[in-house]
């Protein structure tokens, strides 16, 4: 949103927020829609990220499947060792398009150093060569040997197929992937979902929840009706219906989610009790930093021994991007 707002391409819609009580009903998204104290659009949907897992793969490897409360980090890594022995990828991903790797990194960062630190990192306030960054990569390094080999050559849908076939056990993904898993033949019985495990004890749990938004272009011919539409899209009823249709979560806190979808129910529960929500690496960081960062994350997942070079390069990019 920032590049468009800074370039003067969006209309200020603060009055829509104030006139329709959105500051209260959309409170969770208010901060991310605000630049210079003004609101620049309304959110209409978001979805949770977390770990989707194949219960059959857990059974095949003789590992106890996690319940809704999840597992702790040490158990997760210990399980990975068992999956490896059983010839199953503990964690799968497809980083050809780069962003799926960033999802893993986001959680490493949020769980190791917390939301505020992660925001500082993506805002360019922390040096990539700092020890706190190395701590994140150290945790990622524990996971690295158990990630699907050749993930750099496959798309996220290809990795989803590995999960569906039971060749992989866990997948850090957004809730949109559930439709793909189910098309592949999984059901609510063998597809599980849990929040990403806690790494550093005591850090309040924050989640990745990319929000989709609607804006009005600055030169719009009929801003009055456009604002009316924005107010409608932001309403609890409209968001309930819209999100039930697209299988995502409403941003309006007075909306409801379909109770027969366990993934939406647990996602809604998880996000409404979270300490804070990040937007995703490539939205939190400026485009150029995001691109370089995601390449660095992908390279680390392939060549962990290159960490020093990766961090030095990212630090160089940071020097150029945030001026």
């Amino acid at each position: 949103m920032a590049p468009f707002v800074n370039a003067g391409q969006f209309l200020d819609v603060t009055d829509v927020w104030d006139g329709n009580g959105l500051n209260d009903s959309l409170a969770s998204a208010a901060a991310s829609m605000t630049i210079d104290g003004k609101k620049w659009g309304v959110p209409y949907t978001y979805y949770q990220w977390g770990i989707y897992f194949n219960k059959d793969a857990y059974k095949a490897a003789g590992v106890e499947a996690p319940g809704p409360e999840g597992v702790d980090w040490a158990t997760f890594i210990a399980n990975c060792e068992k999956f490896k022995a059983a010839g199953i990828d503990c964690l799968t991903t497809g980083t050809k398009a780069l962003w799926p790797g960033a999802g893993i990194f986001d959680y490493m960062s949020l769980r190791t150093n917390g939301y505020e630190w992660h925001m500082d990192l993506t805002a360019g306030k922390i040096a990539w060569t700092d020890d706190s960054v190395r701590a994140v990569f150290a945790e990622l390094g524990k996971l690295q040997p158990y990630v699907t080999a050749n993930h750099a050559a496959i798309d996220w849908q290809d990795a989803a197929a590995l999960l569906v076939q039971g060749k992989a056990a866990n997948y850090v993904m957004g809730n949109f992937a559930v439709a793909t898993f189910k098309e592949g033949g999984m059901t609510n019985d063998n597809l599980g979902f849990m929040a990403f495990p806690e790494i550093t004890p005591g850090i309040p749990r924050s989640e990745d929840a990319p929000t989709d938004t609607i804006h009005i272009p600055a030169g719009a011919a009929n801003p009055a009706d456009a604002k009316l539409f924005l107010a409608y899209v932001a309403s609890a009823d409209a968001q309930t219906k819209l999100n039930a249709a697209i299988g995502q979560l409403p941003t309006n806190k007075n909306s409801t989610v379909p109770q027969d979808d366990p993934f939406l129910v647990s996602g809604f529960q998880m996000l409404s009790t979270a300490h804070a929500l990040s937007q995703f690496f490539d939205r939190d960081a400026p485009a150029e930093m995001a691109k370089a960062g995601m390449e660095g994350i992908q390279q680390f997942l392939v060549q962990p021994e290159e960490l020093d070079n990766i961090l030095a390069r990212l630090e160089q990019v940071r020097g150029q991007v945030y001026k």
């Binding site: 980083t95 050809k96 398009a97 750099a152 390449e295 390279q299 392939v302």
Partner: peptide, 8 residues
């Protein structure tokens, strides 16, 4: 084929 990847 690669979108420039892996990592450029």
């Amino acid at each position: 084929m690669t979108s420039g990847g892996p990592f450029g």
